[in-house]
Simulated assay, not measured.
Amino acid sequence: MERHDHASPSVLTALVVDDSFASRTRITMLLHLGGWRVHQAVGTEDALRLAALLQPDLVVTDMVMRQGHGATLMRRLREQGSAARFLVVAARRTHQTRALAAAAGALACLAKPVDPRLFVDVMRGLAPSALAPARADVAPQPAQEIGPQAEEMFLSALPHRLSAIAISAQAGDAAAVAVAADALGTASDRLGHAEIAFLSNSIARDARRGTVSHGRLVALVELCARLDTNSALAAQAATSR
């Protein structure tokens, strides 16, 4: 589908989907401050219609709405060929909610009402300048510039992302494995975890061909477990100084 951009190339588009006016307004204001062009939708069908017209770069959606479910919306957007990144907000951030968000390809699941400081920290890695096409004369930003809070969020979401991949693999749903592994690969690459990103992308690539390698899944779990252990040891060492 051909994209019609009415904004300048440096301004990217976000779609905020929530049936709460207060929540939509809060997130829209924060996105505006970050330099995004923002549109709003009340439910799933409204969001799908707008997304087809706007082809947004980012979709921020509530998980449970009176007019649809966030996970369903994200899956349908992917089926329609959307290349948007997804961010989920939820009134109840249960294990199931986070696993559903991760399986649908969300980069993060934030609690409602959204904490402005946490939201800004997450969005730093999704700012228009970060999502714009890379230029050959501009060196990539070092991973540590994303911020310690983003790394904390990545580690806290890691079990849910792995769970989403494992549950989909056990169910024999290769398409869901590909989406969940792609999401983990994207987040890992953004934070400089090259080995996890490489393995996740390999799993996603195989899954898109209809194959899920048990050996690669085991290797990914072991790699993530080592990362989690090393991070815990580093945190313990820092507090004991």
Rank of each mutant, 00 (worst) to 15 (best):
R98H: 03
M65D: 04
A130K: 07
L199F: 00
H69M: 09
D189P: 00
I146D: 05
L126V: 12
M123I: 09
A181Y: 05
A171Y: 03
C224S: 15
D57V: 04
Q40I: 02
P113N: 09
D5Y: 11
H214C: 10
R226W: 07
A134N: 08
G185T: 05
A166P: 00
L162M: 03
T211H: 13
H160T: 02
A194L: 06
G125P: 07
Q55S: 15
G192W: 03
Q80G: 13
S20Q: 11
R135E: 13
A181T: 07
A176K: 04
R205T: 13
L73P: 00
A71E: 03
S202N: 13
L233Q: 14
R216Q: 15
A207V: 06
R209A: 14
C109G: 04
D228T: 06
P159W: 05
V60W: 02
D228L: 02
G192I: 05
L223M: 15
H193G: 01
S23W: 08
I167E: 15
D19S: 12
M1Q: 09
A237C: 07
F21C: 04
S213V: 10
R85H: 15
G125S: 14
V42K: 04
N201R: 12
R78L: 12
K112N: 08
L158C: 04
R75N: 05
A207Y: 04
A187H: 03
D18Q: 04
V138P: 02
S200I: 02
C224D: 06
S163P: 00
A194G: 05
D5C: 11
P113H: 11
V17T: 05
Q96C: 02
R66V: 09
F86L: 09
A183H: 10
S188H: 01
A101G: 14
D115N: 14
F119Y: 04
V114N: 10
A225E: 14
A91N: 12
L110E: 07
L158V: 03
L30K: 01
G35A: 12
A174Y: 01
L155P: 00
V11D: 09
R93Y: 01
L110H: 08
A134M: 10
L223T: 14
S156L: 06
L54S: 06
R117V: 08
D57I: 03
D121N: 09
T94G: 08
A130L: 06
R216H: 12
N230A: 12
A219P: 00
A169W: 06
Q96R: 13
T239M: 04
L31V: 10
L15P: 05
L131G: 15
Q141D: 10
V17G: 03
D5Q: 15
R66G: 15
A181D: 07
V218P: 01
V11E: 13
E45C: 07
A103W: 01
R161H: 12
R37P: 03
G43Y: 00
R26K: 13
P148F: 04
A219G: 01
L233W: 13
R124N: 15
F198A: 10
H214R: 15
R93A: 13
S231W: 07
S82Y: 06
L73K: 01
A103S: 13
A51P: 06
P116G: 09
R66K: 14
I27E: 02
A136F: 10
T25P: 02
D228M: 01
R92N: 12
S8L: 14
E45V: 12
S20L: 06
G185S: 06
F198L: 08
A166D: 13
V42R: 07
H6E: 14
Q40Y: 00
P133Y: 08
S10F: 14
P148I: 02
